[in-house]
Write a protein that binds this DNA or RNA. Structure first.
Length: 796
RNA sequence: GCUGCGGUGGUGGAAUGGUAUACACGGCGGACUUAAAAUCCGCUGGCCGUCAAGGUCGUGAGGGUUCGACUCCCUCCCGCAGUACCA
């Protein structure tokens, strides 16, 4: 028998599979479909990392398994290829992003092929290619038509280093998620998508998808649905009112002041009444200049009373002061709150500082003195509502404000509209043109794509580099007339990745974004593998787009990812996060060179549960290589006519184990079971060919190369990957005697070997006959618990 | 603080009500070899005990439910991740 030489074997089969179009997507009638989707990777110049490999291999095992199970399988790949790294590289080196991106893509494709991922490369797409972004622009136009894409002047998050605005979701702890620079607030005229229209559905429909609970929880939290009440408080001596939002209307008798956000428009309306206008205005000016981080991290609450203005509590007609304070956010609720210092931590803290009084209106049985009760309880000091529970009072008070016409029940969300403009070059151009007066006009669909110009200077200036493009200017004037110009901003790259999964099956279709037939056949994805870092942004935006296209009648489903799993983050061998800084980065292609692609695939799956974080361990990896070598060596023992009921039994048991584990993505335990089988088979003097061939089929999704080579060495001309998944033959599984654990009072004392169908009496007789066990029987058993084939517990 | 996940040998982990530690790594001992590598075989949770038979403890801690608990329930501790003035 020759030795296992993976490099030659693997390269041979990569070529062979390509030549025979093995991975071409098939859509045969009468078959179920399986869509195995890997999240749109950014084609970085550094190449594939172990996390990519982990997710892609999981997708590939699922794809190959389902193919053998007789399904039509789609496993595509594309590139989230717009974005800052390529542009920054261009600024540094002058290499156009088009060029560096295509180079990186080429490298990615080679690496993915080398891992044996059965991607259909005919369907490969890239966000940066005009044949793709034509349709990104098309979606923009559809949103625009429905009023869901709009332009407004708003204070936005501005990253001074990247020289662009950021979405709320891209600001982490007041810093730019990409470069960690402190984000500034800036008023700008920008494009938004009205994702807030979908807030309720985005929360509710999470109940329908098979996703990790943690990911759903993060999305729910981000969207932040709260049930509450809007109530209008009249202003004394004025027509104006301040509308507040509260989730605790039951505490309204304890409201001793109102607070409005510094940006609240009511302040402008009340100006003539304000006696300390200068103080109020300087506070507002001050708050405006604070960065997001400064506002968040200040420990003390600050604020100023708006003197000369009093609000009236509609429940008890008492006059209360009004403050402006930046702990109230203009972007949430109505931008104004009723403050109840006795039952809210924040209001309490503020009231203490500014000497405002406290009225307790809620009590509970076990409440201590001086304790601030923030939970529900029973109402006190609340007029006719006194004595009611918080729940009862909430419902009565809501009815009352509705009757009075001064308020209503309201569901409020934390989610804000999605700011999509970016003042950068390497992104999808926004398909909008301005007339000489500066009014925006949507482009006509037939004029798409609006192609990114190449005559630009990449240096960032705070405005899009596209502004300087002569060709862009010329194109606009030729098409629309003198003085017309294109929108120079590009779209957030998250727009590109919000719909790519819908395009694969129709990639290259220049007439429409996709055919309904294809898109609704393959989608939603049956397995979406994506890093755990993408829990809010991409997933929420993609769900929004899908729901929009569903509403527009293009899709028959409104959740894009039926089943989603994260791959656990792999840390370095030292247990630290892989980073160039620590020199602990494992490059999957180096590992392929060192051992084989099959080894890297199986090791990454064997490390631990797919979703758990886990450290890389070089010597464990060599254990997987050892396993594959043992598989290879086993083939030398294979003979045509070996009759072994034991081997038949073992392989049939293995079929159902591997099937169960593969379906539940428990790849680590599946591999352990392969190893157990090999440990068994290695002890046999000869191995039945039919048994070994079943083994190879089971292993094929995991280790596609070695199995293909051995399969072909047995004289098969058709690929192992085109074979059907083996079917368990129950009759071959031996009803062997089993070890029955024997316990006394729940303590294990030994075992007896019995037929799994043995009666309790038979089992007891065996125990009595066994000296080492019978010695424990000191008196008549009080109770005997017998579970066939598992346990015999004798209670004394 | 809140939300979610987790805590099992020297290490990665297995077992979701039934012999805790499968599988693998590492370690120890042995075979083969001039030697090494590779390969193969055996042992490998702690403690007591003659390396025996056997006993005993043991899944973060403490309680509970059960014939029986890593698994279910309660209280608490610790770690990781996300999030944070959201009214």
């Amino acid at each position: 028998m020759n030795r296992y030489t993976p490099k030659d074997i693997e390269n041979k089969w990569i070529k062979n599979w390509e030549e025979t179009n093995l991975n071409t997507t098939k859509k045969e009638s009468g078959k179920e479909k399986f869509y195995s989707l890997y999240s749109f990777p950014y084609p970085s110049g550094d190449g594939l990392h172990v996390g990519h490999a982990e997710g892609m291999v999981a997708n590939d095992i699922a794809a190959r398994y389902n193919r053998m199970k007789g399904k039509n399988v789609l496993i595509p790949m594309g590139w989230d290829s717009f974005g800052l790294p390529a542009e920054n590289y261009a600024i540094k080196t002058g290499v156009p992003p088009q060029e560096s991106t295509e180079k990186a893509v080429k490298n990615f494709i080679e690496q993915i092929k080398r891992l044996g991922i059965s991607v259909d490369w005919n369907l490969e797409l890239g966000a940066h290619r005009p044949d793709y972004y034509k349709w990104t622009q098309w979606i923009f136009l559809q949103l625009y038509k429905k009023g869901l894409a709009y332009k407004k002047n708003a204070p936005v998050n501005w990253c001074p280093k990247d020289q662009t605005v950021l979405a709320a979701e891209q600001v982490i702890d007041g810093r730019c998620e990409r470069c960690d620079t402190l984000v500034e607030k800036k008023d700008m005229y920008q494009w938004f998508f009205k994702i807030t229209d979908y807030a309720e559905r985005l929360v509710k429909d999470l109940d329908r998808v098979d996703w990790p609970e943690s990911t759903k929880a993060v999305q729910r939290h981000w969207i932040g649905q709260s049930e509450g009440t809007n109530v209008k408080f009249p202003i004394s001596n004025s027509e104006s009112q301040i509308e507040i939002f509260t989730t605790r209307i039951d505490t309204i008798f304890g409201c001793t002041f109102l607070v409005v956000a510094p940006e609240h428009k009511i302040i402008q309306n009340l100006k003539p009444q304000i006696s300390n206008l200068q103080e109020v205005e300087s506070y507002i000016e001050n708050a405006r200049n604070k960065t997001e981080l400064e506002r968040q991290s200040q420990k003390d609450k600050t604020g100023v009373e708006i003197k000369g203005v009093k609000a009236v509590n509609p429940f008890n007609n008492e006059e209360i002061p009004v403050f402006v304070a930046d702990y109230v956010l203009n972007t949430y609720g109505t931008g104004a709150i009723m403050a109840v210092p006795a039952h809210d931590e924040r209001d309490g803290e503020f009231a203490e500082k500014y000497g405002i009084n406290n009225i307790e209106v809620i009590t509970a049985e076990n409440k201590k003195d001086n304790e601030r009760l923030t939970e529900y309880g029973t109402l006190i000091n609340s007029g006719e509502f006194t004595g009611l529970t918080s729940e009862e009072a909430t419902s009565k008070m809501q009815s009352w404000v509705e009757e009075q016409g001064i308020g209503f029940r309201k569901t409020t969300f934390r989610l804000r509209d999605w700011l999509v403009s970016r003042q950068r070059y390497w992104g999808c151009p926004i398909p909008v043109v301005y007339d000489p007066e500066g009014n925006p006009h949507a482009m006509d669909e037939k004029d798409l794509p609006l192609v990114l110009p190449t005559d630009v200077d990449f240096k960032p200036t705070g405005e899009s580099p596209i502004k300087g493009s002569e060709s862009f200017k010329k194109l606009a004037e030729e098409k629309y007339g003198k003085g017309w110009y294109f929108e120079p901003d590009t779209m957030d790259t998250f727009v590109d990745s919000s719909w790519y999964f819908l395009r694969y099956a129709d990639n290259g279709n220049d007439n429409e974004i996709f055919t309904k037939e294809n898109v609704n056949y393959w989608n939603p994805a049956d397995l979406y593998m994506i890093g755990a870092e993408h829990t809010v942004l991409h997933l929420m935006y993609a769900r929004f787009f899908t729901k929009f296209l569903f509403d527009e009648g293009y899709l028959t489903f409104d959740e894009p990812f039926a089943k989603l799993r994260h791959m656990g983050i792999i840390s370095g061998p030292d247990g630290r996060k892989m980073s160039k800084r620590w020199g602990n980065v494992i490059n999957p292609n180096d590992e392929v060179e060192k051992y084989s692609a099959d080894t890297v695939r199986m090791y990454e799956m064997f490390m631990g549960p797919l979703e758990e974080p886990k450290p890389w361990n070089d010597s464990s990896e060599s254990g997987v290589f050892r396993f594959l070598t043992r598989v290879w060596d086993l083939s030398a023992k294979v003979q045509d006519n070996v009759e072994s009921s034991k081997q038949e039994a073992e392989i049939n048991k293995l079929i159902s184990k591997i099937e169960k584990d593969t379906e539940s993505l428990a790849f680590n335990t599946a591999i352990a079971k392969f190893m157990e089988f090999v440990n068994f088979a290695a002890k046999e003097t000869s191995l039945s060919k039919s048994v070994f061939e079943i083994f190879l089929k089971l292993l094929a999704p995991y280790a596609p190369f070695i199995t293909e080579e051995l399969w072909s060495s047995f004289g098969h001309s058709e690929s192992i990957h085109l074979q059907s998944w083996p079917i368990v033959d129950e009759s071959k599984i031996l009803r062997e005697d089993v070890n029955l654990a024997v316990q006394f009072n729940g303590k294990s004392r030994g075992l007896v070997v019995v037929n799994p169908e043995a009666s309790e009496e038979e089992a007891m007789n065996l125990v009595k006959a066994d000296e080492r066990l019978s010695k424990y029987i000191t008196n008549e058993p009080k109770k005997i618990v017998y579970v066939k084939g598992k346990i015999l517990n004798i209670v004394l």
